[in-house]
Design a protein around this nucleic acid. Structure first.
Length: 259
DNA sequence: ATGTCTACTGATAGTAGA
């Protein structure tokens, strides 16, 4: 079974590109972030043609998350309790024998912006939600755009980025607290010394200069990690394909053996 | 360092967000 996460930066703008990727990689379950459209405008038919169903938690203009899957998903939760004012950023489902949630974590904007403190609070709420509603002994996956580079290895700047947005101790403590609920970062666990990135700024030729961050990942419980065969950050799909513009994030996928 | 992309608007160019 192949599971994946991808911040697509606008579903309307990315629909053809996303369909190319689905046909090429054939994932079974996909968490999508940054849909940037109202749920009513979600193109269910287009995905049905490719054999996928979708559950959607979204809003006009910004944010928005969805889960695509070959088997139907049952929604357990939409929105992070107490944090709904911060946008449509979480959907939590049961699908294909997994508890599967995808999140678009707040960016924070800058260290002196009010959204930075709100980002930290949002993470505290996410950790509390997982600790309260998830069981560490169940097969579960929490994936998405976390907007935190968990360690120096996850930044093109290495340790020189420490202290800046995405690289602060406060953000990294939150990411660690999330893992402490009983989750492992599948990419990092599989590639202890890997320095692959999942996001590159559109500006300044960042992709070609290797100026990226690893902020998108799949977190999972031991029940899932035990089935892990491989994790791939699909860098080719950060490039233009058939003249179509890519998202600023690459998809990340993992292959799991049968339970 | 900030060259791009997306979505919005009493739109048709400018702004905000990332």
């Amino acid at each position: 079974m192949r599971i994946a996460t991808w911040n697509i930066n606008g579903l309307r703008a990315r629909l053809d590109y996303l369909c190319l990727w689905l046909a090429s990689r054939a994932p079974d379950v996909v968490g999508l972030q940054e849909l940037k459209l109202e749920a009513d405008a979600f193109p269910h038919e287009r995905f049905a043609e490719l054999g996928y169903r979708a559950v959607v938690h979204s809003e006009k203009s910004w944010n928005g998350v969805a889960v695509l899957s070959r088997e139907p998903a049952r929604i357990i939760g939409e929105g992070l309790p107490g944090q709904e004012h911060f946008g449509a950023r979480l959907i939590d489902v049961d699908v294909a024998g997994l508890r599967f949630a995808t999140v678009y974590c707040p960016n924070g904007k800058s260290l002196d912006h009010a959204d930075y403190e709100r980002k930290l609070i949002w993470f505290d709420a996410l950790t509390a939600y997982v600790a309260r509603h998830w069981k560490p002994d169940q097969p579960a996956v929490l994936c998405g755009d976390f907007n935190i580079a968990p360690a120096s290895l996850d930044s093109w700047q290495g340790g020189k980025g420490d202290g800046s947005l995405f690289h602060t101790e406060a953000e990294r403590r939150r990411f660690g607290a999330l893992l402490d609920t009983g989750l492992v970062d599948l990419y990092r666990q599989r590639h202890p010394d890997g320095s692959d990135f999942s996001w590159w700024d559109y500006r300044g030729g960042a992709f070609h200069r290797g100026h990226g961050l690893r902020i998108d990942t799949l977190l999972a419980t031991a029940r899932v990690y035990g089935r892990l065969q491989d994790v791939v950050i699909d860098r080719d799909f950060r490039k233009k394909q058939d003249g179509l513009t890519a998202s600023d994030h690459a998809p990340v996928y993992a292959d799991l053996s049968h339970d």
